[in-house]
Nucleic acid binder design. Sequence first.
DNA 1: AGCATTGTTTCACA
DNA 2: TTGTGAAACAATGC
Length: 250
Amino acid sequence: MPELPEAERARQQIERALGREIVAVDDTDTYVSRPHAPGEIAAALVGRKLVSAHRRGKFLWVETDDDGPDLGLHLGMAGRIVVDEPPAPGNWDRFVLEFADGGRLALRDKRRLGRAVLEPDYSHVGPDAAEVGRDEFRARVGRGGAPLKARLLDQGVIAGVGNLLADEALWRARLSPRLAAGSLSVEQLDALRRAVRAATRDAIKLGGAHTGRLIPHRERGGVCPRCGGALARDTIGGRTTYWCPRCQPD
DNA sequence: AGCATTGTTTCACA
DNA sequence: TTGTGAAACAATGC
């Protein structure tokens, strides 16, 4: 599920858990909590409270009281944050905080590509895709020989755009995912920035990256919801990509 | 059975 | 050294 809109929803869920005393931590999934040993995160957090929840792109972090460590969270490919819900079957709650009031916060993740880590290093993460300014977008996205789609997916360039949001934004901006990022005009880059921001805002409002206009048509045999032409499908930037060759010519 | 998956990191190679 | 692309990671669903 998770792209920027889902991560923002997760951040809002974390805010419901602020100010409560942590009485227990389940950090026994050594893959999700790598490189920490079991009990390490627990020892650092028990007795503390979460005080604020932050996000850049898909990367989340939570500040703790006094001089406590930050807790970094990432939803991976299939994770979400649930607060005050009973435990999921099948050990899908890969990382859990239990609070003094009986409530709990869990990283619920059918796969195990989510992440919980102390003092996360997000220094390599670019500016948030929903906040990035015009000049910064031009400078960061509009360079390099990689395909535009790959550039958008690079979280170090701008953060938060995933596979679905990238296809949606490129379709809205009428730009081919195959164009070399460095070959775009400033007008094209500005149009792309508007499309990224609008697609992101709409997705947050409507409930997720899967709510985009193009998304229901991202399947074999799908047609462009704008012109009705057959969509193209290929692997670009390592991900399956759908686009309209007529609306988004190379 | 085989393949794809809304993500990130690491590694090989130019 | 820098940039790019493929593979690995884990588990599930079609």
